[in-house]
Design a protein around this nucleic acid. Sequence first.
DNA 1: CTTTCATTTCAAGTTACGTTGAAATAATAT
DNA 2: ATATTATTTCAACGTAACTTGAAATGAAAG
Lengths: 104, 104
Amino acid sequence: MNEQEAAALFGALSNDDRLRVIRALVRAGPDGLAAGEIAEAIGASPSRASFHLSTLSEAGFVHAERQARSLRYRVDFDRIGALMRFLLEECCAGHPDLRSCCGS
Amino acid sequence: MNEQEAAALFGALSNDDRLRVIRALVRAGPDGLAAGEIAEAIGASPSRASFHLSTLSEAGFVHAERQARSLRYRVDFDRIGALMRFLLEECCAGHPDLRSCCGS
DNA sequence: CTTTCATTTCAAGTTACGTTGAAATAATAT
DNA sequence: ATATTATTTCAACGTAACTTGAAATGAAAG
């Protein structure tokens, strides 16, 4: 991961609707949620939710799988972890002040 | 910290020039760097660096202090840590997969 | 095969962000 | 006071992101 990729991933997180999407998917657990359920969970129109989901999906934070008529989305913790690790290790050189801050 | 504030902070990190600013300030240590030194470090014009610094400053990731003719900037690890903690604890409910990912 | 349901794509308008160079401010030295 | 250095602010432009509603796609049921 380089600065440019990390910047793009931070961009995918720079929207409160999308943060709520992640939160809803985390709460939902391994089964994930269908796109329509997500739209309802964050109080957005289907097309708006779809737009945010495609942004998150392109960033790799979520993945979709078709299940009958629905597209079921799941969160990818590895991808979020990779970004946090970049910020902590590459960007901040694993500085102790940040490690302790982050509860490590 | 709520979703809206966190989203704004992620927005401040969603630019590779600004990530390089943070990196340069981390490397510089407690003494920080003058705005002009930062501009040179990231290969940007003074006005462009100033623009990015004001974005980072507004987000609270850096702080400035005048020293003679120069404005000396320092990184705020607490602020970065607060954002990481939000992502880990609030947004992802302290999920074990993410904790381990992040080296805790 | 037609209808229905779930979701995405598209086009249009609005808003926000990034870049540039010139002008303005702030502090210091002569 | 004036000049010099460091930095920011401003205006203007181009580009990217967001929102909305309507149309299009994909899958399944009757």
